[in-house]
Nucleic acid binder design. Sequence first.
DNA 1: CAATAAACGGACCGGGCGGTCAACTTGCTA
DNA 2: TAGCAAGTTGACCGCCCGGTCCGTTTATTG
Lengths: 199, 199
Amino acid sequence: MTSTRRLRADAARNRRLLLAAAGDEVAARGLGASGAAIARRGGVGKGTVVRHFATKDDLLAAIVIDRVEALTAVGERLLVSSDPGAALVEFLTVAADQQQQRDLSFLQEAGELTEQVAQARARMFDTVHRLVDRARDGGAVRSDVTGADVILLMCAPNYVASYAPDGTPDLWRRYLAIIVDGLRPQGANPLPHPPPAVI
Amino acid sequence: MTSTRRLRADAARNRRLLLAAAGDEVAARGLGASGAAIARRGGVGKGTVVRHFATKDDLLAAIVIDRVEALTAVGERLLVSSDPGAALVEFLTVAADQQQQRDLSFLQEAGELTEQVAQARARMFDTVHRLVDRARDGGAVRSDVTGADVILLMCAPNYVASYAPDGTPDLWRRYLAIIVDGLRPQGANPLPHPPPAVI
DNA sequence: CAATAAACGGACCGGGCGGTCAACTTGCTA
DNA sequence: TAGCAAGTTGACCGCCCGGTCCGTTTATTG
């Protein structure tokens, strides 16, 4: 499978360096970050980037898998929490916080990438579905909201806050709170459109 | 000012064609739509695009101004409505609907563009502030939400829906409804972060 | 129906991108 | 410590982008 051979020490170091640099660069420049810039930021040659991640999509896939798996782990842990409503809010907070440092919104675009990405994403989506089901059963989330809704809404707080004037790194919390209030049963008006098909 | 000279008939026609083509292309391909593609879609030569809109930013600016002014006009009209809460919802619906056909989210990025864009945007923002103030005074919107919040949230429904599987062109209505419910006073929990500075 | 200025179109240019390659360097191991 | 495979590097390629330019076409007007 993936475990072809053990990496040489410097190669492993460079790989880590590159993943970090790529993360930073993508966070700064957005999804169109140039491979050359990533190499420069990582302090390595352009060729090295390509050696480690054959194509640019492979590089993006590596970043995405990293973060998605971390987020999934958090979700799994919260699945056994005693307060399902708070667990969901906590999950969304962690997700947004993770994205705040390094914009992860392109997670969605990554659908056409590696099979590995698809699997990692599917596992995370499954976790979200379960978190939402639990919260809904506990009466913390309105009955007409599905896991798919929450998956789609997950990136919205960062997206919304990203257009505000700088110097407000935590602004996403404000919009997460508004969206969460919109997800609660209290004062909910019926939704005008059916939920999206299972994601 | 802008009225240097009267346009020749074919030039005016091409200009309209180009604006439409550019709108479609941007809607389809996103903000990175290529000038050549726009020219092809409009059935004109590449040079013609450049002639009408010296730089690519000018072309984007033209589209943005078009839509922003249309939206502002709607808002102005709604400012005299008898139901301030419904007026705000209607405004947000029109805004999202406008964006649905042709993604307008890049309105936000357009901040660094022409002075004209800045002015058009400022007028629209002012209209939103007044709509929100009226709705808040009428008790239709929670007291801790500002016009700046609504401005930032305005594009979220389309953004959220854009990642759903295709074939659901009206899905944004669902997320607009959730966000609107989050903006209502009923069941509102205090917000954890101050609103952004005036936009 | 000219004559003319306005508008058109596409070849062309510089630049940056993703990706390849062969010469060079270096960590590993026997 | 010597030899070699693994790793690095930057020059290089083809591609497409935004923008320029000039020969050609066409709407306008007297």
